[in-house]
């Protein structure tokens, strides 16, 4: 039965019976999740439920102890060379942007291309500028990250990841460190990326974005996937009481919902 899923060429990410512990804390319990090419999956859940850990297992920023994580048809285990090759095809955006402060915006976007993909310098610059254009940051190409606002930095981080021409994009709460007025500009970039057909796995509490963009919403609690449903059903008829409680909390507190 495993080999059946493995042979499915449209599968970008395949997670089977994933278990992870931090010391004795069991933070991911029997997680199984498949993401097809072009699919947009939003992961939500209360704080500490293991969303970040799960998404970070997909590019092995965290190592799992049990189960299978397969990305682009290759299983991720200890082998380093294969891992780096996979990581170059999996873009990631972080909550705190993590731009390289000692490099200009442009260099942030070209360094990994020239150094890890062997793209010639002029081509790398061209690609970087066109992507910076797309996130409306081309005019800031020669600035340093510290001179820019959070929203601008996050858009650059997205452009930086896209410069590697990834097949999958991972987002770990890309807007939760931002002031409300900057959230919209980042979500706009992410939405247009989704419309272009990028495969996206996105941890976020932006329910408006999830409703509009997601093909599927995954709700996690205490290290488990509690519910998995398309947005209409997820919001209108959540099955599990835990999901219902989470949704009512988020909607009552209002900030993130629409």
């Amino acid at each position: 039965m495993i080999s059946k899923a493995k042979s499915d060429p449209a599968l970008m990410v395949r997670i089977e019976q994933l278990n992870k512990w931090f010391g004795n804390a069991h933070v991911l319990k029997n997680i199984s999740l498949n993401v097809e090419a072009g699919e947009k999956v939003v992961i939500c859940g209360p704080s500490g439920s293991g969303k970040s850990t799960l998404i970070r297992c997909i590019n092995q920023l965290e190592q799992h102890q049990q189960g299978t994580v397969e990305v682009l048809g290759e299983e991720l285990n200890g082998s380093v060379k294969g891992l780096e090759r996979i990581r170059r095809q999996v873009g990631m955006c972080f909550q705190h942007f993590n731009l390289f402060p000692h490099l200009t915006v442009l260099k942030n976007c070209t360094l990994a291309q020239t150094s890890n993909l062997g793209v010639p310098q002029d081509q790398a610059i061209e690609r970087a500028l066109s992507l910076l254009d797309k996130v409306k940051m081309r005019d800031h190409a020669n600035k340093f990250p510290s001179q820019l606002s959070g929203g601008q930095q996050q858009r650059i981080a997205i452009a930086r990841a896209l410069c590697m021409q990834p097949k999958v994009m991972l987002f770990d709460e890309p807007t939760s460190a931002l002031d409300p007025e900057m959230i919209a500009e980042v979500l706009e970039v992410m939405t247009s990326l989704a419309h272009e057909g990028m495969t996206m796995i996105c941890v976020t509490h932006e329910m408006g974005f999830a409703r509009k963009v997601a093909d599927r919403i995954v709700f996690m609690d205490q290290g488990e996937i509690v519910e998995e449903a398309p947005p209409e059903r997820f919001f209108s008829a959540p099955e599990s009481p835990r999901t219902q409680r989470f949704l009512s909390q988020i909607i009552n507190h209002g900030v993130h919902a629409q």
Binding site: N59, L61, V80, E84, R87, R88, M92, N98, F100, M164
Partner: peptide
């Protein structure tokens, strides 16, 4: 982490 995620060895 950002460097690793971009495939830097």
């Amino acid at each position: 982490e950002a460097a690793q995620a971009l495939g830097f060895g």
